[in-house]
Design a protein around this nucleic acid. Structure first.
Length: 883
RNA sequence: GGGCGCGUAGCUCAGCGGGAGAGCGCUCGCCUCACACGCGAGAGGUCGAUGGUUCAAAUCCAUCCGCGCCCACCA
């Protein structure tokens, strides 16, 4: 037999760093993560592409770990498992980063011009685009790196154009002049989903419009006084009798003398404020619609940077919007038109999801929109009839509600970095969309063409991700084989921004759902549930954690908190450390096993059933239970449960009892016998490593390789269960042993070291005989049968599961001495306890102590009280031993 | 305004109709020949409050209190 000692190169502590480097290289070298269409069952996950210029954070680490757990298991289960990675160009985010870089050099993109600027962005991308990919690899992600894609690479850009043109020609994309969400800082339009609403403490100002004919006035309230510069009317409810006499008349604008009609419209709530509302069509979506219905004109009084524009009276031009607010209020006050000064008013204001500036509802000129009415119906049905399943299911309802209320999607951005809108305008006023850059007008043939200057919303390309990465619009073998993908793993924060749109576009462009399952997870927070932020100083950098504790530890810690119902996922250094300790535990269990087991060719094989000891039967039974739990949990995407089951089995069952019980058997005997005695634990270990591999691939691989059972645990078969390993008798019998041992240990802990003898009746002795060595080792006592006779000396009666035993304690033991010691300590504790109580009492009467100090004192009293209880119990036990 | 989630051991959470659990932290004893990133033994909870359904409720229902999130064209 080949007899190399697998343990000689296993140090007492697992060393993650070298292990990770070694096996990463090995996996990539062998292309174990590469996948092609085959006769196997397809299993595909597309990675939600992180920002190409971003850095890997704890949220990425978590989300990607979940995907890796899934795909590694699927691969072992014999599926053709593809995890397709990539990065996103992230329009605004990237453009802003590069603009900031340029600003350091004193450069401005508008001065550089579009082409030069884009060149700089590409340089940036080439320089930093690999960084996040390398970071993803450091996690141990088993992505098919040969298929790495980027939303602006050639193929995906082509997909964007085809999608656009198809939707344009089908009337689903149109250009229109509507109120949009404008970010004055990024100077671009945003979709509704990119606006975050926040409650803000504002002020409600009521001011007065005098009727032009001098016959009275009407008061209106607003939180945005400055927009009154753009008012073109006043609206009241049609059935509001207070105002019926002034409908149709006009009021005079105090600053520029314009006459503003008073109109009637259903949208006005008569119960709010004065029941009359100023109408600013160019700066408020509601007002825009009122103006549409009533024919009021639109007057734009803001520039793109939210300063007051030329359409406004001269005295306010050029002012910033907030400054204008103050100045307009002052001007109104000067004219005696303020009815109520500012009243505190809490209302919700939109903010840019990127830069957090206040969003300006603005009439920016023509923008491009996707009409959603025809797109959303199939997307609704796909979720309703279960072609797409949400995990947890409650997100389905959120998704459906959002879709039902969805309005047209603004997709044009006034940026340069992104997919330029493939629409051209000719000198004759024709407009057309084209996949390839045209040389002449599609309608009149003249060559004088201008391409639309805007680029598409980043999410327009992202929504194509599940199929554009597989080759769409071409009907590639990949697309045919892997689409629809199996499961999408993502956070709830982009359910609308991204997930819903992938479903809508996938249904429309490809004709089928983009994925069959959607796994929605929570957000990674710190141990106190707070968001990780630099200002709080609570950021856990996954790369630091990998450096310090190893990738396996980080992954396992992430797995353990992956409960699906949580919105917050607390990640702490302590949790990662605990996972690191677990990896080390597995490592050392292997050292133990390889101390006697000598791998032959192939995986360990179980000896014949008749040769299993009780401890082995119990271990195999527990292992089978563990396997079933892991399978059920992973099928339900419950990685917290799966990792918990593995932790419990590997540590508290396999190591603490399974391995310990076998130690004595292996300690004695010849080398050959030792090997035989290890076959069961070796078999269990090898299979446990396979179960552990999706979570802790590096340590699993490093140990697994020592069995010489195959190329790599990455492609080893996922363990099949052995239902016949369930062994209720062994569970019962060994459970009894565990309890008996625990009882003995408890007494030994109190009495102290020495020679103990566990004395049992003949019947029980016979039952325990096969376990004699294990029991003696675990309990630290020799086992003797004495029939019904009383043992000599001092002993404690034990009653475990209805069976009686007596533990004879060391002859030299002197209870009175032990009791005296305990009594002394009890007296000390009691004194301290009384002191503590006295102190609390004094503090209560004098109420002078700081609350924190009182709390601390209370905790101290609690501790002392508990200690006294424990000592008391010990004294009682010792006294029962008789003096 | 509409919807959703959460309140269980000091901390973070699992359990969701019949035994109150895990990790970390804490106390005590141990460098026991795989592991001190360890071993053994402990302490610690009226499962947010009230009422109801049930033979039985942390677990189901109702109300309330306290956190948090999402959606919404609240001037």
């Amino acid at each position: 037999m080949e007899s190399t000692d697998q343990r000689t190169d296993m140090p007492p502590q697992y060393e993650p760093k070298a292990t990770q480097e070694r096996w990463s290289a090995f996996w990539l070298d062998r292309k174990l993560f590469h996948s092609e269409p085959s006769s196997r069952e397809p299993y595909c996950i597309v990675l939600p592409p992180p920002n190409v210029t971003g850095a890997l954070h704890a949220g990425h680490a978590f989300q990607q770990s979940l995907q890796d757990f899934i795909i590694r298991r699927a691969r072992m289960q014999g599926r053709e498992a593809l995890w397709l990675p990539g990065t996103d160009h992230a329009g605004i985010a990237t453009q802003v980063v590069v603009e900031r870089e340029l600003a350091k050099e004193g450069l401005d993109r508008r001065e550089m011009g579009r082409e030069a600027f884009l060149e700089r962005v590409w340089q940036w991308k080439d320089r930093y685009g690999d960084r996040i990919v390398q970071q993803m690899q450091a996690l141990g992600n088993s992505c098919d790196w040969d298929r790495l894609r980027f939303t602006m690479d050639e193929g995906l850009s082509q997909a964007v154009r085809v999608a656009f043109v198809r939707m344009y020609d089908d009337g689903l994309i149109y250009r229109g002049e509507r109120i949009i969400n404008w970010c004055p800082r990024d100077r671009t339009a945003l979709s509704d989903s990119e606006v975050e609403h926040e409650e803000v403490d504002g002020e409600l100002v009521t001011f007065r419009y005098e009727l032009t004919d001098g016959g009275g006035h009407v008061d209106v309230a607003t939180t945005r006084v400055e927009t009154m510069l753009g008012d073109t009317g006043v609206a009241v409810h049609p059935s509001d009798e207070r105002y019926s006499s002034i409908v149709g008349r006009t009021v005079r604008h105090p600053f520029d003398g314009r006459d503003l009609p008073v109109v009637a419209d259903e949208a006005v709530d008569p119960a709010f404020g004065t029941g009359a509302v100023k109408v600013t069509p160019a700066h408020d979506p509601n007002d825009f619609e009122i103006a549409e219905r009533t024919g009021l004109p639109r007057l734009n009084v803001l520039n793109a940077d939210a300063t007051v524009a030329a359409g406004a009276p001269e005295e306010f031009r050029g002012l910033d919007r907030y400054e204008a607010r103050t100045r307009v209020t002052e001007a109104l006050r000067d004219r005696g038109l303020i009815v109520h000064e500012e009243r505190p008013f809490r209302h919700s204001v939109g903010h840019c999801y990127r830069c957090h500036s206040e969003i300006e509802p603005w009439l920016s000129g023509k923008q491009w929109f996707v009409a959603v009415d025809r797109l959303k119906q199939p997307a609704i049905e796909a979720a309703e009839d279960g072609r797409i399943v949400f995990h947890p299911e409650r997100w389905k309802h959120a998704y459906l509600e959002w879709l039902r209320g969805l309005r047209d999607w603004n997709i044009s951005r006034q940026l340069w970095w992104g997919h330029r809108i493939p629409v051209w305008y000719c000198a004759n006023g024709h407009e057309f969309a084209a996949v390839e850059d045209p040389a002449s007008c599609a309608e009149c043939g003249i060559g004088d063409l201008d391409q639309d200057p805007d680029v598409l919303d980043t999410w327009f390309s992202s929504q194509l991700w599940p199929y554009s990465t597989l080759g769409w619009p071409d009907e590639t073998p990949d697309l045919d084989f892997f689409y629809p993908t199996t499961v999408l793993v993502t956070g709830y924060e982009i359910l609308y921004l991204w997930v819903a749109r992938m479903i809508m576009s996938g249904m429309y462009l490809v004709g089928d759902v983009p994925f069959r399952n959607v796994l929605i997870h929570g957000l990674v927070r710190d141990a106190q549930g707070r968001k990780m932020s630099k200002s709080l100083g609570n950021v856990i950098d996954p790369l630091d954690m990998i450096e310090e504790y190893g990738a396996d530890a980080l992954r396992f810690a992430l797995a353990r908190m992956a409960g699906p119902e949580q919105q917050n996922l607390p990640l702490s250094r302590e949790g990662i450390e605990a996972a690191r300790n677990f990896a080390n535990k597995v490592w050392n269990a292997s050292r133990q096993v390889f101390g006697s087991y000598r791998p032959g060719g192939g995986a360990p094989e179980l000896p014949d059933r008749t040769e299993w000891s009780l401890a082995e039967r119990w271990t195999l039974s527990r292992h089978q239970a563990c396997l079933e739990e892991v399978d059920a949990a992973m099928d339900a995407y419950r990685f917290d449960e799966a990792s918990q089951a593995l932790y419990r089995f590997a540590w508290t069952e396999f190591c603490d009892w399974g391995l310990e019980a076998e130690k004595s058997r292996r300690a004695s005997g010849e080398p050959g016998e030792r090997h035989d005695a290890s076959r069961v634990v070796a078999w269990v270990l090898e299979r446990t490593l396979r179960l552990l591999h999706p979570f802790m691939p590096y340590v699993a691989e490093d140990i697994w390789q020592r069995f010489g059972a195959g190329e790599s645990v990455v492609v080893a078969p996922w363990p099949e269960g052995h239902a016949d390993h369930h062994d209720d008798d062994a569970e019962e019998a060994f459970g009894f042993v565990r309890e008996l041992v625990a009882n003995v240990r408890q007494i030994r802990g109190i009495v102290g070291p020495g020679e103990y003898r566990l004395v049992v009746g003949d019947g029980l002795a016979e039952e325990l005989d096969p376990l004699r060595e294990a029991v003696e080792r675990l309990a630290g006592s020799s086992l003797v049968a004495m029939g019904d006779a009383e043992p000599e000396g001092r002993f404690v009666r034990l009653s475990v599961r209805g069976r009686e035993a007596r533990l004879q304690i060391p002859g030299e033991f002197d209870p009175s001495q032990a009791i005296a010691l305990r009594r002394k300590r009890l007296a000390e504790t009691t004194t301290k306890l009384e002191g503590s109580e006295q102190k609390l009492e004094n503090d209560r009467f004098l109420s002078r102590a700081a609350p924190e100090a009182v709390e601390k004192e209370r905790a101290k009293r609690e501790d002392l009280s508990r200690e006294a209880g424990v000592l008391h119990d010990q004294i009682t036990l010792l006294e029962s031993l008789g003096a």
